Simulated scan of single mutants.
Amino acid sequence: MISCLLKKTWRFLHIPFLFAYSLLYKFRIIIAEVSLGFLVLVFYCEYLHYNVVIQQCYWPRLSVDNEDFSIPTTNDNRLKVMLIADLHLKCKRSNWYEIFSEEVQMERCFQHAVHQLKPDVIFILGDVLDQGMHCNLKDFDNLVQRFERMFSLPNRTKMYVVPGNRDIGYHHQIDVDQNKDFADGLKSPLVQHLMVKKNNFILLNSMTLGDDSCSLCSVVEEKLAEIEKRLKCSQEEYRGTCDQNLTMPIYSRPILIQHLPLYRTSDENCSDSDSAPWPQNLHEMAEYWECLSQNTTDRLLQRLKPRIVFSGHLHHGCTRRLPQVGGIEVTISSFNWRKKDKPAIGLAVVTTTNYEIVKCQMPRYATIITIYLLGILVILFWIVYSHETRRIFVTK
């Protein structure tokens, strides 16, 4: 019974099978060439192109223009800092294309950049999540595991995260329990004072700066007051007038790390390579939503006197001089292709008395798609050309 069924099946299939085999044999050379072409195209677009683009990135050289001669210099090694903003990882991924076009590409960009540039410390400037307020605890735990896999680091490099509005909500939306889950999962307290190679970094949850007396705001104000006092007591003119526990061995003006930019009216005067295009750069910014309020900004600058402020949130880049206290604010564009076709990371070299910052462009989604389309057209042209050439040769 079975042998009879097999014979009938073979009678039915052997003709198309032999026909397909004869076609494959006849065009075996073209098929091999096309397969090789596609392999080369995929290898370049999915691996080599990242190397080509990121190899153009470099650590900036320090310039005497930014040297602070009012502070005693040290001979410590320079600190290499990488800055990334607005990852917007989704709690639940809906399809394979979403995974490939966002997470896989971000992971490749990040890992190539870390491998080639070898930063000492990395700061992620908020919005790790895309819809953190609607992410349950189980999905959040899974997302943290994905984040740790995508942004895994060698032992020599440290990473720190500050929360954004997509992680815990804007000021009036913050849920205390949700903020605690984010802080515990990604090791991101409300305020954190770090000293890395004698450089002061202040990591701030800017969602809590709302010019009111909310519970989290009070905690942040207390911690900022402690940091302000410690920075003041560590300056040369105040040494000996404060408790010794409040005095740091070396003073350096702090570097402020947060999600929301400081107050500005628009991005009209921003001219970075990843700045907002016209007329989007003329959009008037709303306080509390797109930037901190003017009162909060003035208070932070007066209390902390930062030399650099790094921020994200706007998905476009900007560099501008800080009012009142000198120094600069650098806003980093989104690292997610869904938010920014031309993403960039920040690269900074800092010492206790000097700094220099550049932007490093990542591969563009539009460029990779264009290369794929051009590569497919070249392969199709080669198929026609190769077939016609062989046909003419055989005819002769």
Rank of each mutant, 00 (worst) to 15 (best):
S252P: 04
I71H: 01
P261A: 11
L204S: 03
H259I: 03
I357A: 02
G37Q: 04
A344L: 10
R93S: 12
S22L: 12
G312S: 04
S152I: 13
D243F: 07
L83D: 00
G169K: 06
I257R: 03
L137S: 12
T351L: 01
T74H: 00
I345W: 01
I124L: 09
P279V: 12
V42M: 14
M195E: 09
L186T: 00
L143D: 07
E268P: 07
K198R: 15
N205A: 04
L13N: 12
E98N: 10
V325Y: 00
I227D: 05
S311N: 13
L89W: 04
G312W: 03
L24M: 09
M248F: 09
L347G: 04
Y251A: 00
Q173M: 07
P60Y: 10
E226C: 08
L282W: 08
Q145N: 13
C242A: 06
F151D: 08
Y25A: 07
Y160M: 01
Q302S: 09
Y97W: 08
Q173E: 14
V81I: 15
Q280T: 10
S215C: 11
P261S: 12
K158D: 12
G185E: 00
Q145E: 15
H315S: 07
H115C: 13
G346E: 06
D130G: 02
C45P: 01
W59S: 05
S213R: 14
I332A: 00
D130Q: 06
K340N: 15
N51T: 07
H14E: 09
V144C: 07
Y97I: 15
D177W: 12
E226V: 09
I54K: 04
T74Q: 11
G327R: 05
K232A: 11
Q302C: 06
S273M: 10
H115R: 13
D127R: 04
I357T: 09
L224R: 05
N354L: 03
A348T: 08
M1K: 02
Q294H: 08
P249V: 11
I371S: 04
H283Q: 15
S218M: 13
G132R: 11
I174S: 10
H387Y: 14
S188M: 10
N165Y: 04
C318M: 00
M106E: 08
V196W: 01
M106L: 06
L6Y: 14
D243G: 12
D177E: 15
I174N: 09
V114K: 00
I202M: 00
A225L: 08
T353H: 06
K118L: 12
R108G: 06
F393V: 13
P154W: 10
N66M: 14
V325E: 02
Q56E: 13
T370S: 12
S252R: 05
V176F: 14
D68E: 04
F38W: 05
P16A: 10
I202W: 09
N179P: 05
F147G: 03
L117C: 03
F12M: 10
T351K: 00
G185D: 02
A225P: 08
L23Y: 05
I328Y: 02
V114P: 00
N281A: 13
T331D: 02
Q178H: 13
Q235R: 15
E67W: 09
T208Q: 08
W278Y: 11
K223F: 06
R28H: 14
N179E: 13
P323T: 03
M195R: 10
F27N: 09
E284K: 11
S386G: 10
